[in-house]
């Protein structure tokens, strides 16, 4: 597991796994879209609009997952002085921002036919919007410091402080009485979703994850190169 914290090892492994991951993501996208658009049934209440779920839910999960991994890497980087964490934070923040934006836009498009409005000030929606703004602040911070050492550490501290938002996003549907429905798939109980809809959802989640990993590998490699040219 050394390649997760060591830049040169990461470069070696990334060269091996980049093409398989890209091909896997294309295959999974084709399969997932086939399942999502043709093979899965319509909802008995929502009709065909339920198919927005196959984009909305994976991007929402991945936006939270990306921030969680960034938090872990910030702790590792600050506590053990491992610079790969800073590289990871700089590289991955725009990917998380894009996932959050996809989640917000698709949710808005889903909300108009179902709830009758593009946006409500409900706890889940507001906290996700705040997550998006936190991602944007991280990206802007990466551009606005001249000293590289200060920039990286300050961004890591900001990510740690901003991670208080994660449990609020996750549990907002349980703590407050919101318009957004509570979590359908949870670890402790049997999922309240039919297997015919569960299958495309899982496939789409893995497809999103693979395309995210592929872009992350490219961005991390670029970041390593720019850092080397800066240090030398």
């Amino acid at each position: 597991m050394n390649f997760l914290v060591n830049p040169s090892k990461f470069n070696e492994i990334a060269d091996y796994i980049f093409k398989p991951i890209l091909i896997l993501s294309i295959v999974l996208f084709a399969l997932g879209l086939l399942f999502a658009l043709y093979l899965s049934p319509d909802d008995y209440q929502q009709g065909s609009t339920v198919r927005i779920m196959y984009v909305h839910v994976p991007s929402a999960w991945l936006s939270l997952l990306t921030y969680g991994i960034m938090t872990l890497y910030s702790i590792v980087a600050l506590a053990f002085r491992i610079p790969f964490g800073f590289i990871f934070n700089t590289a991955v923040a725009p990917i998380g921002a894009v996932f959050t934006l996809i989640c917000i836009v698709s949710g808005s498009l889903w909300g108009k036919p179902m709830w009758g409005t593009w946006w409500v000030w409900d706890a889940r929606l507001t906290s996700v919007a705040i997550l998006f703004i936190i991602y944007l602040i991280i990206i802007f911070m990466n551009f606005s410091f001249e000293n590289r050492v200060v920039r990286e550490k300050v961004v890591a501290i900001f990510i740690l402080v901003g991670s208080v938002n994660l449990p609020i996003v996750k549990f907002s549907v349980d703590w407050w009485n919101t318009l957004h429905q509570p979590a359908t798939i949870s670890k402790l109980s049997k999922p309240s979703i039919d297997p015919s809809m569960m299958t495309p959802l899982i496939i789409m989640t893995f497809a999103f994850m693979m395309i995210g990993i592929a872009i992350a590998i490219l961005r991390i490699k670029t970041e390593i190169i720019s850092r080397k040219s800066y240090l030398s």
Partner: peptide
């Protein structure tokens, strides 16, 4: 403190 470009942040 070291941010000389983007005061509004």
């Amino acid at each position: 403190l070291m941010n000389q470009r983007n005061y509004l942040l």
